[in-house]
């Protein structure tokens, strides 16, 4: 009996930048699997390598060790066209990831042209509808859209090729809280509708717990812990670092006022 291979399998990924004494290990021995329709979170502070994981998957960062399997088949470097019909990415800052001099129509037509997909007209109108924008947005420029609308366009651009995996790099961190809620709802809805698998990078534990069932905590390029959203919710995460992040995300806690008798004198 054979079990189906996972949709995406990353084993012992490592990414190094620089040579010799200046080598920086951005990723060091990171392994995970992603099942179809599953959603995996990557959390950690700046510089922990969480975005590098996504860049390594898409081939934007060179792998210096480990390998990637898509549907049980090794992913070649450089990536082939068919890889990108299966895997697409949404970037962090919708103010920077859309071409400022292309209309929404041009932005959405580009992936279709690259992959020689016919019937662009109908696909563009349908893609706009999927992300909750009317056809009136089709001939606007990015500067005529709000942050939330831009992120919807970025999501539409990723989905227009009907990928099975969407890589989300901090998709809501540049947005207001109320707009974040709309985008998170949209992502959940699309995942249900198209059976998408997500890899979500975020520093916001609440956002990750909301969208993902499983998550990986990274620190300085290494995996600290692999845990579940449920463990995050009831506070039963094991690693001290995860506990510290959990405590820090709960807001500011004022330390108890120090006893002036024992506090060291400070010259101000």
């Amino acid at each position: 009996m054979t079990t189906a291979p996972p949709l995406l399998e990353a084993s012992h990924l490592s990414v190094r930048f620089g040579v010799g004494r200046l080598t920086v290990a951005a990723l060091d021995d990171v392994s995970f699997t992603l099942a179809p329709g599953e959603s995996l979170g990557l959390v950690g502070e700046s510089g922990s390598g969480k975005s590098t994981v996504l860049r390594a998957i898409t081939g934007l960062a060179p792998l210096s060790g480990g390998h990637l399997m898509l549907d049980g088949v090794a992913v070649p470097t450089p990536r082939r066209m068919d890889f990108f019909t299966a895997v697409q990415m949404v970037f962090q800052d919708p103010y920077a990831s859309l071409h400022p001099r292309h209309t929404v129509d041009q932005i959405l037509a580009e992936p279709l042209a690259i992959h020689r997909i016919p019937d662009a007209e109908a696909r563009i109108v349908a893609a706009l509808k999927e992300v909750g924008l009317g056809p009136s947005y089709r001939f606007r420029y990015p500067h005529q859209l709000s942050g939330g609308q831009r992120q919807r366009i970025a999501i539409a651009r990723a989905l227009i090729l009907r990928p099975r995996i969407v890589l989300l790099d901090e998709p809501t961190s540049a947005l207001d809280a109320s707009v974040q809620a709309e985008i998170l709802n949209l992502l959940e809805e699309l995942r249900r509708a198209f059976g998408l698998a997500y890899i979500l990078v975020s520093h916001d534990l609440a956002v990750v717990a909301h969208l993902c069932e499983r998550l990986i905590v990274l620190r300085q390029g290494r995996m600290v812990e692999e845990t579940t959203a449920a463990a995050l919710r009831d506070g039963s995460v094991k690693a001290d670092y995860t506990q510290a992040m959990l405590a820090a995300s709960k807001g500011f806690t004022r330390p108890a006022p120090a006893d002036p008798a024992i506090a060291p004198a400070r010259n101000i």
Binding site: A177, A181, E188, L205, A206, V207, A209, H210, L246
Partner: peptide, 10 residues
């Protein structure tokens, strides 16, 4: 509208 660790709603 903030996602919460305790008592999440979908």
């Amino acid at each position: 509208c903030l996602p919460k660790l305790a008592g999440d709603s979908h």
